[in-house]
């Protein structure tokens, strides 16, 4: 029983990071109707950035978030302008998949040359510290990571609900045509929406780097996991992505402590299959057969 609860705690804390990463991915989907295959790569790139900032300048990765996030936002906007905007409308969806895939490869290639392929992790002073809460061990790193994830998700929520930019995004996600009629500049929204999605990747990268060892090839694993989370939550639903992140975090963590760590990685895959079989639109996704 104790191990079970321990597993749940661990799962919730880790789930927060997945929630953050997945929210960016599902946001990009909502705005551009394209699944960004490079999301994982940007998380890893940001993890490397945080790693460099830490090893070279001693900046704590969680603090580095303040640097990496605006930087990645900018990269996201520029990347969108360079690679995604010029697509002719007919081909857009199909080519977007491949373009984001190519971007992921580009990022992976650059990272592997810059950093080689050895696994890295960010070992801060509190990396091995753990708190004792009511008899359960709570790792400091995971707790801080969770707190930061929650804070950022809250920030995302505020941006989307309270700012004009956020409202424009939500309107575009709901109904792109009406949004344009209401005066929303769809190109701008797509560019900034994409940037915002990449920015969440940036923020989560720091946390990811603290929690898991990574190398340039880690984005494949990560994008697969993110897909499971996003599909469970429902494409386009940020709330769904958050909830799904925590759920999958808990399930995989419980599987790891009660069964085996290797096979717990399969949890993501199993969840994906189950969702696709039983309810492909996930928890909160829309069932639309693309009429409009």
């Amino acid at each position: 029983m104790h191990t079970l609860v321990q597993g749940v705690i661990l799962g919730v804390l880790t789930g927060g990071v997945y929630a953050l990463m997945a929210s960016g991915q599902t946001l990009i989907f909502g705005v551009m109707k394209v699944v960004n295959l490079a999301q994982g790569a940007f998380v890893i790139a940001s993890a490397y950035l945080a790693f460099t900032l830490f090893t070279q300048f001693g900046i704590d990765p969680l603090v580095a978030v303040l640097i990496t996030t605006p930087l990645m936002f900018g990269i996201g906007v520029v990347g969108h302008w360079l690679f995604l905007r010029p697509l002719r409308r007919e081909d857009a969806t199909e080519l977007s998949i491949l373009i984001t895939f190519a971007l992921a490869l580009l990022v992976e290639g650059i990272l592997s040359i810059t950093y080689r392929t050895t696994y890295r992790s960010i070992n801060t002073s509190y990396a091995n510290k753990a708190f004792d809460v009511a008899g359960f061990s709570v790792s400091a790193v995971r707790l801080y990571g969770f707190i930061v994830s929650c804070a950022l998700l809250l920030l995302l929520y505020v941006i989307l609900q309270k700012t004009r930019f956020g409202r424009a995004i939500r309107a575009t996600v709901q109904n792109p045509q009406s949004a344009t009629l209401l005066g929303v500049d769809s190109n701008r929204v797509k560019a900034y929406g994409f940037g915002l999605g990449i920015a969440t990747a940036a923020a989560s990268g720091s946390i990811y780097g603290l929690l898991f060892p990574f190398n340039s090839g880690s984005h494949y694993d990560l994008i697969s996991r993110l897909l499971s989370v996003v599909v469970l939550g429902g494409l386009g639903s940020i709330g769904g992505a958050v909830l799904a992140g925590v759920i999958i975090g808990v399930v995989s963590s419980v599987a790891a402590v009660t069964w085996s760590p290797t096979w717990s990685e399969m949890t993501f895959f199993v969840v994906l299959i189950l969702v696709l079989l039983i309810r492909p639109q996930g928890m909160f996704g829309r069932v639309e057969r693309g009429a409009l």
Binding site: V35, L37, T93, S224, L227, L235, M266, F269, L276
Partner: peptide
């Protein structure tokens, strides 16, 4: 059963599995 872009990632997952 899903859109082409989700399918793409599902196959990536398959490779990883």
């Amino acid at each position: 059963r899903v859109r082409a872009d989700v399918f793409a990632i599902v196959t990536i997952t398959l490779l990883f599995v």
